[in-house]
Amino acid sequence: MTGLFPFSLRCAQTLLKSSLPLILIPGAVLFLCTMLQGRIGFEGLLPLMMFSLWLPLPLFMLLLRRQLPFLGPGDPSLAWTLSLPVPRGLHRLFTLASLFGVALILQLIVSVEVGMGIRQIHPKQELRATEILSPRPNNPPLLSKKHPIQSFSAPRGSGKGILSFQARRFLFSASGDRVRITAENPGNPPTALATIRVDEDPRRMRISMELPPKKKFLHFQLLASPHGPISFEHAPVLWLGRPLSNLETGGLLFLDTLPWVLLLVFGGFTATSFLQTRIFGLMVFGLALTPLLVPSFPRIDLAPLQAGGIPIPQFGLSFLWAFVLVPLGLFPPRRNGGGIE
């Protein structure tokens, strides 16, 4: 079994070498963004930078069948691999380990590059760790005299930060309305943080405040509204924490994309055992589009990025379901001389 380590390392080395050109993609896109910077604003350039975060990994998976031509039906070296007296499941496990390792390295490098790129094109050239505060389920849709309070989970971080509002419908009101923000830890009296005068365009509002530690909720309380109730529907409230270094930015982007990486690597690897190369390519791009096609799939929200924040991943350990694909990927390739093409 230990004899498979050199084989695995060799697979990793081959994959790493072939994936090196892919790390140029974010750089090329950044160059393009820099050229366009005068004509297109940050919000317009951001999707381009995010595209460069998305593209390298599917391309890397496409290279997989060419670099390791023994994974599935129709591959030119498959017969050679199957002739080796090695447990096939173990052989695939070691190959998957090398693939997974290289995919993680590639995605980390690309994430750091994209993080640097976003910082470069951001007007203030500063990125902060961002949390999207989730509203409590019993929140009223409108702030009115009858229901004057809306509550949100408090950020996990504490200390100095900025509160920002993103959705157009959030705090939709005429200017002049006043809202008080308080932090609360159940059992303790709430701490007043700020009182704000609601702007016409809430996206321009950025409220600097210092959060006390160990708080559980943030409350938004309508104090006075000469114009009637204020809509709070679909209201992502962002907490922009401390500024991030390039590595931290990359690390957060990497963690944000981790569920997608796992799906693409494990799902793609499983698919190699029964798909011919061409249809495998289509499948890889299908898997790569999962965050767009499946709304509940963990993905990076553009709203925090537009506010200059890198979202702190919210998915917890739920992405571990992707590891269920690992045993499926260990099934040896179809040996009927065909494979789905």
Partner: peptide, 22 residues
Amino acid sequence: AELPFPALPAGIFLEMTARAIG
């Protein structure tokens, strides 16, 4: 069938295969 890792020197390829098969 083709042998994989065409960029690998023949000696290293053979040694790697020998290790892999125990």
